[in-house]
Amino acid sequence: MSERLTALRETIRQILPQVDGVIGLKTGPAGIVAPYLFKPGHPEMLDSLALWPKEPVPDTLKIIQKAYPNARLAIVCRGCEERGVVEMFKHAQVSLENLTLIGLQCVQEEALFCRCAKPYTVHARVTVGSPIAGVPDPLTEAFAAKSQAEKLAFWKEQFQHCIKCYGCRNICPQCFCNVCALEDEKWVETGRLPLPNPSLYHIIRAMHMTAKCVACRECEETCPAGIPLAIHFRLVARDVKEMFHYETGAVIEQKPPQLLTLEEGDYERSGLP
């Protein structure tokens, strides 16, 4: 891990003079890690550069680019964060112009922690660390093997713990609508937990993550109730790949399927009559 840290520090040091800032992670007081914008004039700040835990840096990029649309920036991103930046670009949330992606390849234990199928970057020209293969997702597989009644019982139990903190929505780099359906009284009532079944809060969110979720698992990590939210998203992502041949973050030029009309063969694969 420390080898990767040294290599990343060296890479950023080389890129810093060519850009206005590099978004990365920095260790703060008491060893708590947070996103930070490293500036060219202050290479000494790189001493507290950090790798883990990962943070939603695509959001940081959005915040900075909104205020400084023309800034030349670089961003340290893992596979999932790179997919996040690409998807946000497709939905006009960030710009890839003047942006350098510094790909940080995850190591085995990080990939296992995230149950990640793609713990590597594909678009970044500058990379640190060597890419490893994806790992299986035992949680999602176990869920998919359940019967219909077991699935219902599983979510009834899990959603019981939901305190409706909206944390999964807030931290999600792909949740950027100005008007959120989850704040609409018609679908999600204020002052009531999502439990009244079916949990509209969770199903609507899962629906809106279709062809958007980049499998970064930030929602699961921030959930105070420990609900394995990524199960929904990953199963739907699998369907989207089968039906519409779309994978988030894979091809920058490919438009998301929800913006387009049906392509040849899409309908036949959708399973509708």
Binding site: Q148, K151, K156, P198, H232, V236, M243, G271
Partner: peptide, 11 residues
């Protein structure tokens, strides 16, 4: 098509 799948995943 996606919603049908999602209903399925919710039991």
């Amino acid at each position: 098509a996606i919603l049908r799948q999602l209903l399925e995943y919710n039991g």
